[in-house]
Each structure stands twice: as C-alpha cells, then as structure tokens.
Amino acid sequence: MKNRLFLLFGAILSAIILSSCGDVIEEPYVYQKPLDTTKTTNQKVLLEDYTGFTCGNCPAAHELAAEIAKTYSGKVIIMAVHAGGYAKTSPAHSYDFKTASGTIYDDFFGISKVGNPNGMINRKGYAEGAKNHILPKTKWQKQVDSALAKVAKIELTLKSTYNESTKTTKIDVTINYLGAGTKDLNLDLYLTEDSIINYQTDYRLTPPDNPAYAHMHVLRDTPLGTWGELISSTDVPAGTKISKSYNYTIASDKDFVPKNMHIIAAIHNIKTYEIVQVEEVSLK
C-alpha cells in the first residue's frame, strides 16, 4: 500500500513537471516595436477582408486592415468582400452590399463557413479541402510581412480615364514581365467603393449598432468577370510588356459614387489561385 502511494505521488510529480507551467503575460499585451516598413521591393499585396454589416466583430478587423495598410503605405491594397450570413439583408437593413462574384469567392474559399471576420492575403495557401488560406485578423500582419518580402516578377501599371457624361471609364493595364512568366496567369479587375454610409453592427458599442458606419473598400463589381481573363496562352519571356485596355460603364441602376471608387488590377495563378501582383488606382 505504502509503496503504491509513493508511486502515485511520483507519477503526479512527474506529470506536473512534464506539463510545463503556464505563461502569464504581463502588459503590454501588444507588440510596440515598429515594423520594418523599409521594404524596397516592388511587390504589392491584396488583403481581402470578408465581412458583413451584421458582423459585430468585423469593424475591429476593418480598422486593423486599415492600420496595416497605413503602416506599409501604398503596398497593401484592401478589398472588403461582403458575403455569407452576416451580409444577408433584412427589411430593417435592406441595403445589399453583396455581389455575385463576392459570394462565389466566399463559397469557393469557404470563408464565411469558418466565420467572420476572416481574410486572405494574396489568396495564398489555398488548397482544396484545407483552410490554410483563411486567416484570422491576428495573422494578417505576419502574412503581409512575408508577402512583401518577395521580389516581384511582374510589374503592373494601371490608369483610369473617367468620362463623366457617359459614366464610362477607360482602364489601361500594362503587365511588365521582369522575369519569365508562365501562361497560367489571369488578369482580374475589381471595383471597390469607399465611404458608403450605412448600418453596421459593432460589438464595441452599446447598444451594438452604428446606423451611419463608413463602409470602406467595398467590392462592387468585377469588370472582367469573377475569375478574370487569361493574359497569354503561351509562356512569356522576360522583358515582355503586354498592354490591355477595357471600358467599364457604371450601370444606371447602381448608386456608385465615382469619386469614392477605386479600380484594383490583380494577376493570379489559375492553378494555385495565388495573387502574384496587384495594383490600385482611383477611378476618377
């Protein structure tokens, strides 16, 4: 009996030693060190923030995204995709932020199934059945950091010439292959809008309602369709420049405010879905 009790206490002791003690964190809880923003490469990053106006935890994510974009001024391009259950309209909140393409992205990448807010950085890490590409807001900064460390193989230049009377803009895209390029690349165009004043649930408020929230970077349309168009049907040698031109007309039934709009051009690999380069320009 005694031997066995000794054995027991030995077992307990070794179990306690084996399972290490916990790490109690003291203030400050958030890293204060300045981030390395001196990255000199020409790579830019698309931060997609999947969101919805009834998602009470989403405004904090919007702000964090804005903070990240500010830190790496001009190198991080934000696109807010309203999709999934939190983007569903109701009689009280009937304004529909959803787009057909946004819903397709959300379904395809499985984001709102996992929950909102969540996002993707350059859609990196996508593989069918896995969820490595879906990033909670706490992981955005780190992924942006590593994506920006890359040296870009493609440079994008983007120009928009807007005609007020026809509500049409001419979009000029130049794709400059700094290194050899493959044929598996598609060009995507996204239209986003800032400062759409409408309702947003915000759990940081009591009651958690903001009737006049400024919705930023909202995906409004995809001029080249959901998955864009193929840039070249053959591999492209280094040094090649391909120029493309498109006209986009704001449909008469849309309430888009041109001065608040941006055009985003992105190039993605059609096999991995990863975005290899992205650029943004004001529509007007």
Binding site: S20, C21, D23, I25, Y29, V30, Y31, Q141, K142
Partner: peptide, 21 residues
C-alpha cells in the same frame, strides 16, 4: 485536475502565451 495546452505563439501583433494552464 491540471491541464496545460501548448500552441506556438508566433504572432506579430499580440504577445501570446504558448502554454496555457
């Protein structure tokens, strides 16, 4: 009972506890 969970705390924003007990 005593339970400890270990998870990598490699986060660039929050200082996170790797071992939570």
């Amino acid at each position: 009972s005593y339970v400890s969970k270990y998870q990598d705390n490699n986060d660039s924003y929050y200082l996170l506890p790797a071992n939570v007990t």
